[in-house]
């Protein structure tokens, strides 16, 4: 559903101010990437764009204030070519997606039966999964922290892009990437082979040790004591989305760009910051308030605050809450006052 003219004006102004100072993170070789945007007014996707510099991308974001902004994990010889074969694929970075609302223990809250909002329980579950994923990427797959772009999606989950320059990794086909997914999700794991591979029955298998390789170390680090079972493996496995990882022409949200479903920037995180991450007002760059007319009644937590809305009753809310409601067509903007747009830390070198 598209936004009303007034609501659009509000969103455009906020997005535009943000992009003037936003620490958007673009790949070093941005001229070999495809860029794509979802427009704010008609919500159509503009694909196959290419840019030569960060200034060009920033200018585009400030002037067009797209609802969503993406670039390709793939590198192409002709990134603007509309056809995959004409674009001439040069390899793709690895991409992982953890969606919190697909995890067990995630309780969502419905706003007016229209939008499902994830709660802290979801974010905590996703953070735990992210911890394990990062461990696998560093300790097992051998990537350095500097190669990992870890970021909040801006809405429900986390993304990790492995910005490696190793041609062997970049050149992996879609089928090959599934083998990595199977490793992370523990699909086809053979517990007996990994934990009980002793030549004779009389020999007592050694317990898994954190300094071991493969799944032995994962169970030692994240498992539950000495117990080894399908159940424990299932809990330690990371439920990354296989479709995302195996897609070699995937578009990823530009890190630190705004997620048009929430109005929050897709904040980059350092490995050490993951545990501190909270889905609250600190994520938003905006400081101010707004008077909105809600289209639904709702009482409950939203972006870390208790919010009370009564349908059609004008209510004063923090400006980031107003932005969230407007982007989801849950309220109309009546008045607003934007005091300040904070310059966010890049959070990442």
């Amino acid at each position: 559903m598209t936004l009303s003219r007034e609501n659009q004006k509000f969103v455009r102004e906020l997005f535009s101010y943000y992009y003037k100072v936003a620490p958007i993170k673009l790949p070093k070789d941005l001229s070999s990437r495809e860029f794509a945007f979802q427009t704010l007014d008609s919500e159509v996707y503009v694909r196959h764009m290419s840019f030569m510099s960060e200034t060009e991308v920033r200018t585009y974001l400030i002037l067009n204030t797209p609802k969503q902004a993406y670039y390709s994990t793939a590198k192409y010889l002709n990134p603007a070519a509309p056809d995959f074969s004409e674009a001439v694929w040069q390899g793709s970075e690895l991409m992982f997606d953890i969606d919190s609302d697909k995890l067990p223990n995630c309780q969502t809250i419905s706003i007016g039966g229209v939008v499902e909002v994830v709660t802290d329980s979801c974010i905590e579950a996703a953070k735990n999964s992210l911890d394990r994923l990062v461990y696998i990427l560093e300790q097992h797959l051998g990537f350095s922290e500097g190669e990992l772009l870890i970021y909040f999606s801006g809405n429900r989950g986390f993304h990790v892009v492995v910005a490696t320059e190793d041609p062997e990794w970049l050149g992996l086909s879609s089928t090959h990437r599934l083998e990595i997914v199977d490793y992370i999700t523990a699909r086809s794991i053979n517990i007996k082979r990994i934990f009980g591979a002793v030549p004779k029955k009389k020999i007592k298998p050694a317990p898994p040790n954190i300094s071991d390789g493969g799944w032995r170390s994962l169970i030692a680090k994240f498992g539950e004591g000495s117990e080894i079972s399908d159940e424990v493996v299932r809990k330690v496995a990371v439920a990354v989305d296989p479709v995302v990882t195996q897609d070699v022409s995937r578009l990823v949200r530009i890190p630190n760009s705004i997620n048009g479903k929430s109005g929050l920037p897709a904040r980059l995180l350092k490995v050490d910051n993951i545990s501190e991450f909270k889905l609250d007002s600190s994520l938003s760059p905006y400081d101010g308030y707004a008077i909105v007319k809600p289209g639904v009644s709702f009482e409950g937590p939203l972006l870390g605050r208790e919010v009370k809305l009564v349908k059609d009753v004008a209510t004063k809310v923090d400006i980031d809450i107003a932005l969230y409601l407007v982007l989801n067509n849950l309220a109309s903007i009546l008045r607003y006052s934007l005091n300040h747009v904070k310059k966010l830390d890049e959070y990442h070198h």
Binding site: Q139, H140, H176, G213
Partner: peptide, 27 residues
């Protein structure tokens, strides 16, 4: 790892060759 996946491509349907069942460490 990426080389292993390519070399063992045809064997990956066998449990013993699946990456998940292998001793994998630091790349």
């Amino acid at each position: 790892i990426p080389r292993y996946i390519k070399y063992a491509e045809k064997l990956l349907t066998e449990p013993s060759w699946k990456l998940v069942n292998r001793y994998v460490l630091k790349g």
